[in-house]
Write a protein that binds this DNA or RNA. Structure first.
Length: 647
RNA sequence: GCUGGCGUAGCUCAAUCGGUAGAGCAGCGGUUUUGUAAACCGCAGGUCGGAGGUUCAAUUCCUCUCGCCAGCUCCA
């Protein structure tokens, strides 16, 4: 019999008969295969546990603990859900059903939306299918056979999918019981491998994501190798709900969005405004310290400006309609860039002047379709922490590098230390020469590499005017958010005819960099709010200390304490209500005020304060100045110093 | 914008299978003078998101509209 060489990663190989299943090979190499292993990577390709090995192979067992294994597990789970749907509702047609980050979904063509009752039925049936422990097997068709097969089964969406496949390549399908689905695989060996399964919700989705196509019924679910892991996931969902910035914003009285003002437009209440002010002050200090110049620009401008910038052509759907003013038209600004460009243009510039860095907390208005608005995260009026850098081509790399340091420094100050960087390259529809793109992309790449950042490439995801780097941060619940962006632009300098005089006495075109560190203040505030669950660190808390007198006779001393703290620059509240101390503490806790001071006879006599933290920890009695020190020590270095060079 | 769900007091939520709504908290008045997560009593508070229709009668049924929520799509 023919034999092949098979090995586990990093171990010596054994000769095994050709055609042996991956599972049998693993048994020969390593002994019995535990149920946690349900698929294999052979020479880097994921295959079924029962797939035959035809060539020499290095094997790597896959379980739920690997990203590939997790995807296989979820993918098989979605097949189980699909089988359950077909058994409950035979007229539903299969479309697609991939694994996603936290679980899986499957889209069905069905005559009506699934009701909560339907979901229960489907879930119950899915459990049954898991208990049947159906073995899952793979078969291959030619393209024509596959089309015929799925046509006979009445799965016309599948037929459409297969018709889009390349000719001449085999088409695979997986069978479990009576259920057959078109699928690349691999899959779990049997349905019983799924230990914890849950249907989460249903929603509409368009066939192939295009709103002109029919609406399908999408079912979301998730699965885990243990009940405990599923429960932990569900608990996390609860925690996310508890931390929802819309709920916290209301509970803590930070902001509101009201019908009468209009959707997507934020009203900042005093406490929210206080936090925002702290963020903005810090932002301005840092920009001045890092050699940015701050500018201000108007909220409307002549429509002609937006024609020059290209926004009227490329950004129209997100812009509000222009308004007539005297004999010309004006446009509410969707971006800040043209204004900064006009500031640059107000002088003749020398190569010695560059780089020039203009920064502004610039409020812009963008029309967003009503269905996409979401609390502070997606709004119609927002403030970008915008800056535009104008530099010579030879300065591009260094400038980008500085921006990246500024990003990590700034976000780090707010407690975000996990960064993921993405380099987006030339999209199909783009302006500028290939040479310009190559040069700019190289500059971004070099900046990433020399900064020691790991990054991922997003080919074709750049903006039409230049490549960009996006930075995503990770919050306390492990979710990632894109805040910062650095975009190279050779389009606008061209459109606006920007120049500088070089050392050769000739005019040259500067390169522009658009960048934001926080993205938008609204959105960043929402992210911060959820990250801290509303319990802002003392340096950001709208009220840092609240003073709680035991009874009316301690009001005098409480007011003295208030005055001292205020003089030290602390943000203080004083609760003079005729209420018991327990109630005052309860409410201070709910308001998530970092420090509470209880003052009664003992404190008044000793001229001290009894300090309690919002986590319930009692810090005991101390002089007022010690509390001031505690609050100051909580400040990040950059905030305490007023400025820090992120270089 | 599309699909589905939902709009009742400042907030969180009840109720009415068509006969104009109720609780807790918050607010106001009073009693209490209080030691680390809710003292007690009382009062007031709503054109039941808005407009139209059906009906003797609409918060309830129908139509339209505005907004919110989930998802699609898009994005700071």
């Amino acid at each position: 019999m023919e034999s092949i060489q098979v090995s586990l990663q990093g171990e010596s190989s054994q000769a095994l008969p050709k055609g042996i299943t991956a599972k049998a090979a693993l048994e020969k190499l390593k002994g019995a295969v535990p149920p946690e292993v349900f698929a294999v990577k052979a020479n880097g390709v994921e295959i079924d546990l029962l797939a035959p090995l035809e060539i020499d192979a290095t094997l790597q067992p896959l379980g739920f603990d690997s990203p590939e294994g997790k995807e296989i597990y979820r993918h098989s789970s979605t097949h189980i859900m699909a089988q359950a749907v077909k058994e409950c509702f035979p007229s539903a047609q299969l479309t697609i059903g991939p694994a996603i980050e936290e679980g899986f979904f499957y889209d069905f063509a069905f005559e009506r939306p699934f009701t909560p009752d339907d979901l229960e039925k489907i879930e119950a049936r899915a459990f049954e299918i898991i208990n049947r422990n159906l073995s899952v097997s793979r078969r291959e068709f030619s393209k024509a056979e596959a089309i015929e097969f799925f046509k006979n089964r009445g799965e016309f969406y599948k037929v459409e999918l297969i018709q889009g496949f390349p000719d001449g390549e085999p088409v695979s399908a997986y069978t479990q019981g009576d259920f057959v689905d078109l699928c690349r695989g691999p899959h779990l060996p049997a349905t019983g491998y799924v230990k914890a399964f849950k249907l989460l919700n249903s929603a509409g989705a368009y066939w192939r994501g295009d709103e002109r196509n029919p609406m399908l019924q999408r079912l979301y679910g998730t699965s885990f190798p243990s009940k405990e892991a599923l429960q932990a996931y569900l608990d996390n969902l609860e925690e996310i709900k508890r931390r929802d910035h819309r709920k916290l914003g209301k509970d803590l009285d930070l902001f509101s969005i009201q019908d009468e003002t209009g959707p997507g437009l934020i009203l900042w209440h005093p406490k929210g405004a206080q936090i925002r002010l702290l963020i903005e002050n810090f932002w301005r200090e840092q920009h001045l310290a890092n050699q940015y110049e701050l500018v201000y620009s108007p909220h409307v401008a002549r429509l002609d400006l937006w024609k020059t910038s290209g926004h009227v052509d490329f950004y129209k759907e997100n812009m509000y309609a222009p308004m007539p003013v005297e004999s010309s038209e004006y446009q509410l600004k969707p971006m800040n860039c043209p204004f900064h460009i006009m500031v640059y243009k107000s002088h003749l510039r020398s190569y010695r002047d560059l780089p020039i860095r203009y920064g502004e907390l610039g409020t812009v208005y963008r029309y967003e379709r009503s269905g996409v608005l979401h609390g502070l995260m997606r709004v119609r009026g927002f403030t970008q922490d915008d800056a535009h850098l104008f530099c010579r081509p030879d300065q591009l790399g260094e400038e980008v590098q500085k921006v990246l340091k500024f990003i990590t420094g700034m976000l780090g100050t707010f407690g975000f230390t996990e960064f993921k960087m993405f380099l987006s390259t030339r999209p199909e529809k783009a302006v500028g020469t290939i040479d310009q793109w190559d040069q700019a992309t190289l500059a971004l790449e070099t900046a990433l590499k020399s900064g020691g950042y790991t990054y991922q490439e997003d080919p074709g995801e750049g903006v039409f005017y230049g490549p960009k780097i996006d930075v995503k941060i990770q919050d306390a619940l492990g979710r990632s958010w894109q805040c910062s962006t650095v975009q190279v632009d050779f389009n606008n300098p061209e459109r606006f005819g920007l120049t500088y005089v070089g050392d050769d006495g000739k005019t040259h075109q500067p390169i522009m960099i658009h960048r934001a560190l926080l993205g938008s203040i609204e959105r960043f505030f929402g992210i911060l709010l959820e990250h801290f669950g509303g319990a802002f660190p003392a340096w950001l808390a709208p009220v840092q200390v609240t003073i709680l007198p035991i009874s009316e006779k301690h009001q005098g001393y409480a007011q003295e304490v208030e005055k001292s703290l205020r003089q030290e620059g602390c943000r203080v509240a004083l609760d003079l209500r005729n209420e018991k101390i327990g109630l005052k503490i309860r409410e201070a806790e709910k308001a998530k005020i970092p420090f509470m001071i209880v003052v009664g006879d003992r404190e008044a006599e000793a001229k001290m304060v009894a300090v309690r933290q919002r986590n319930g920890k009692n810090l005991g009695t101390m002089p007022i100045i010690d509390l001031v020190t505690l609050i100051r020590e909580d400040m990040p270095e950059a905030v305490r110093k007023g400025s820090l060079l992120f270089e």
